[in-house]
Deep mutational scan, measured.
Amino acid sequence: PKDEAKKKVKEAIKRGDEETAKRIAKKYNLDWDDAKREADEER
């Protein structure tokens, strides 16, 4: 599900692992900028 994928993307971003985050986002066709902004807001 997309929500689960987005959570994984945000967790990867918070760990500083943007490569993984981008790969997950691409795989699930998520909006990378959107997920990154959300992760930054939660930090």
Rank of each mutant, 00 (worst) to 15 (best):
E38F: 06
K6R: 13
E42H: 07
L30N: 00
Y28T: 01
R23Y: 10
K7E: 13
D31L: 04
L30A: 02
E11A: 09
W32R: 00
E38A: 07
N29K: 08
K22D: 02
Y28G: 01
E4Q: 11
K7W: 11
V9S: 00
K14N: 10
L30V: 15
K10M: 14
I13G: 00
E42Y: 06
K14Y: 11
K6I: 14
R15A: 11
K8F: 11
K6T: 06
E11W: 04
Y28M: 03
R43Y: 12
W32E: 01
A25S: 04
K22G: 01
N29F: 06
T20S: 08
P1D: 15
W32S: 02
K36L: 14
R23C: 11
E18A: 05
A21D: 01
T20L: 15
E4A: 13
E4I: 13
R37L: 09
G16R: 03
A35N: 04
P1H: 13
P1S: 15
E42D: 10
E11H: 04
A25P: 01
E41A: 13
K27C: 05
R37E: 05
T20R: 07
R37D: 05
E11T: 04
K22A: 04
E11V: 03
A21V: 00
D33G: 08
G16Y: 03
Y28I: 02
T20V: 08
K36S: 06
E38Q: 08
A25Q: 01
E18R: 06
K22Q: 08
K26A: 15
A25G: 01
R23A: 15
D33S: 08
D33M: 11
Y28H: 09
D17A: 03
E19H: 07
E19N: 06
I13S: 01
D3I: 09
K8C: 12
A35F: 15
K8A: 15
E18S: 06
D33L: 12
L30R: 00
P1R: 14
N29G: 15
D17N: 04
E42S: 08
T20Q: 10
D40C: 12
R43E: 13
G16D: 03
D34E: 15
E42W: 06
A39N: 05
P1V: 14
K14E: 10
D17L: 04
D31I: 06
N29W: 04
A5K: 03
K26Q: 14
E38P: 03
K10D: 04
K8L: 15
E18D: 08
R15P: 00
A39S: 08
E19M: 07
A35L: 15
D40W: 12
